[in-house]
């Protein structure tokens, strides 16, 4: 029961230390004011205890200077906390450009993780140390939440949209992750391990085990299987080549960037945004395609764009 009794969670990501420093500052401020209030009350309680029933304390109405002091000082401290917390939050919410993307799908009650190179995992996430990793996450059913205490990262995994977090692990080892958003009966079983490996071990792990096709290759197969090719490969629908990450002109005159969320919406709700020059004839694939398959098709479309870009 006393096995490993920690007072601080492991600090394993590049942002963990920054978050902890703010945490210590907040703790120090809290201790200062808690001790101040407690000691003052204890002092007053003893110093001014009632000595006789008919004693008459002086009449004190208040003190404006004191009121202003104890309003302004906490306000200034709150200002410091706000700026500190916010600047870390903004920094921590922007994944670096070079981040390796891994996909996370939550469903009652397991985590499904997929690497672009193909390997899939359940309730385990293998990542290389020292490299920024971006997780793109969605849910098949209810809201889940991907929480890695050692990395100080947490984000709700919401059905119907993609959410992202990123981290860069600083030390190899095994660290817990949890589902932090209550998601039904076996919520507390929806946990797993992040396995942080050296880059060499990670490469070995990626290529080892059962040979799996990459997400893009799986997407290419789905492109045939779902019949996407009959329109998008013949000019009846907008082509996929060089689509990902580029602006798309819509029939209402607006322009959107073809990102994950746009592509997902176009698969599930094709009439929401119509590309200029095409007619709204595509049927919805809602209910026929899983979140995982959507991610694979997006990976395929993405691969077509990267190839073009490199030429």
């Amino acid at each position: 029961m006393w096995h490993g009794f920690p007072l601080r969670p492991d600090q394993i990501s590049t942002i963990a230390q920054g978050v902890d420093h703010l945490y210590y500052f907040l703790t120090a401020v809290d201790l200062f004011f808690t001790a101040g209030i407690f000691l003052t009350i204890f002092y007053f309680a003893i110093r001014y205890r009632r000595r006789s029933e008919d004693e008459q304390p002086p009449r004190i109405e208040g003190n404006l200077a004191l009121e202003i002091t104890w309003s302004v000082v906490p306000a200034l401290l709150c200002g410091v906390m706000f700026v500190w917390g916010s600047s870390l939050y903004i920094r921590n919410s922007r994944p670096p450009e070079a981040a390796t993307e891994i996909f996370v799908i939550g469903k009652q009650w397991m985590w499904h993780l997929q690497h672009p190179e193909g390997p899939r995992e359940i309730n385990e996430l293998h990542v290389p140390v020292g490299r920024p990793i971006k997780l793109t996450m969605t849910s098949e059913d209810v809201i889940h939440d991907f929480f890695v205490p050692a990395f100080r990262v947490k984000k709700d995994v919401v059905p119907g949209r993609y959410s992202t977090i990123w981290f860069q692990a600083t030390k190899t080892g095994r660290y817990r992750f949890f589902c932090a958003q209550y998601c039904g009966t076996f919520h507390s079983h929806m946990t797993g391990w992040v396995e942080v490996m050296t880059p060499e071990e990670y490469e070995h792990w990626l290529s080892g085990g059962v040979k799996t096709e990459s997400m893009a290759a799986a997407g290419a197969a789905l492109y045939q299987q779902f019949g996407c090719v009959t329109c998008h490969g013949t000019g009846k629908g907008p082509p996929f080549t060089n689509l990902y990450g580029n602006p798309v002109k819509l029939d209402n005159g607006q322009t959107v960037v073809a990102d994950d969320a746009y592509l997902r919406e176009s698969i599930l709700d094709p009439s929401a945004k119509i590309v200029a020059g095409y007619s709204p004839i595509m049927p919805t694939f809602r209910g026929q395609i899983s979140e995982e398959q959507i991610l694979q098709i997006i990976a395929y479309i993405k691969s077509l764009s990267t190839a073009e870009g490199k030429k």
């Binding site: 920054g18 703010l22 209030i37 917390g85 921590n92 939440d145 205490p149 990262v153 947490k154």
Partner: peptide, 30 residues
């Protein structure tokens, strides 16, 4: 009343951890 003041002070001050964005990310739903 004295118990209230002490415990409310601690409860209120620890609320600052949750108002602050970066620490709330770690502490939210824990």
């Amino acid at each position: 009343a004295i118990g209230f003041i002490g415990l409310f002070t601690m409860g209120g001050l620890t609320g600052l951890f949750l108002a602050s964005l970066a620490t709330d990310v770690h502490l939210h739903d824990t």
